[in-house]
Amino acid sequence: MKAALKWLGLIVLGLVLGIGLAVWQIRGSGLGNDVRVGPWSTGRDVGTANADMKTRAVVALRGLLALPAREARYFTAATDSAGAPLSGKCSYALSGGAIEARWWSVTLYDRGGWLIPNRWSRHSIGSARIPAEAADHWTVLIGPAQEPGLWIPTGTDGLFELTLRAYRPHGLMARDPARISLPTITKRECRP
């Protein structure tokens, strides 16, 4: 009886360790880490039957109902271009050029992937908002204090992340996203 309990305890310990490791990995992973471009990462097989078990589990938690790459590419960034975590207490300049897609947008979420309430009800900037003359060199400001022009409020003092969606990608964005250029995220200043 004692021996049986000992083996049962060992099995339960193993099960708990395995489940704990899986939960930790799923919760700690970005929305696809196959391809990294500066602070941005994406997955090659999001939404397809080719996705491996871990990718499918992470996407289910952090980006359920994401489309496959033919239709949309999703890049997430949890750090600025210098590698520091994105903080709601800081302001940032998001600067980029033309993005090879029919339409793109950048949206701000908390680290769980949820929109953060703010009094402007503003959470994203889409390509339709970028003036045609600035399409090849644009800047969006992100920060806690209201800014003129293209601006996304952080809405929190906590950490946040950005998702860049590129719908109907073409060119290198469709064929080889590892070789594209994506917007840089530069920290400007932080409040105490």
Partner: peptide
């Protein structure tokens, strides 16, 4: 043997959790 039992159970439950997560979240 005890170590192998723990490792075997851990590996099994790890992959079972990854496989089950999409269905559960959906």
């Amino acid at each position: 043997a005890p170590l192998l039992v723990v490792a075997g159970a851990a590996v099994s439950s790890y992959y079972a959790s990854l496989a089950a997560a999409p269905y559960a979240l959906m």
